[in-house]
Structure formats: structure tokens, C-alpha cells
Amino acid sequence: MIQVVLPKNLQILAGVGRVVEVEVAGPATQRSVLDALEARHPALLGTMRDTVTKQRRPMIRFFACEEDLSDASLDSPLPQEVNSGKEPLLIIGAIAGG
């Protein structure tokens, strides 16, 4: 199972806790994890990425294993530690404002 950590606002929106587990077939990618997450929690549609282009919203970041994966290809495999469930994929609302 892939562990995904959501920002607080999305936890409330989806009615879930901080960590959500999703299952994907084959090696996990940003696209497959977000597809699975949105399928399980439709309230999250459009809040992390554009519903048509699938591009990340500008102020959302994806971190894992102390790396910023935000600008990686949507179809690149996520780190093995994420794939194995040892480390979570962190979805972050970028720090902004004063």
C-alpha cells in the first residue's frame, strides 16, 4: 500500500486523517497514486492537479524521501521506499503569504 500524507485542508475536505493508503497496480508514479487517491476520494478532484491536463496546481508540491518530486515526470516511478509503503508521498500546500 502507498502511504499519502495530505495537507490539513484536504484532510477535512475528504473527511480523512493525515495519512491515506491507496493501492496501485505496478510501480507507483505520481499519476497512478493521484488517480487512485482521487478515485477513492472524489472530493479531492481538481484540488491537487488540473482535472484535464493533470498538471500539478502551482502551489501544490510533492515530496518523498527528502526529495522534491514536484517537477518530476508524472509517469516517473516514485522512490522504492514509497512504492513499498516504507515512506509516504507528502502532498504539501506550498508555504506562501506573510
Binding site: N9, G46, M48, R57, I60, G93, A96
Partner: peptide, 8 residues
């Protein structure tokens, strides 16, 4: 809505 998460 939110600048981070768009329109709901």
C-alpha cells in the same frame, strides 16, 4: 476556493 487547492 483556495489559492492552493482551487475551486470546490
Amino acid at each position: 476556493s483556495s489559492g492552493w487547492f482551487g475551486q470546490v
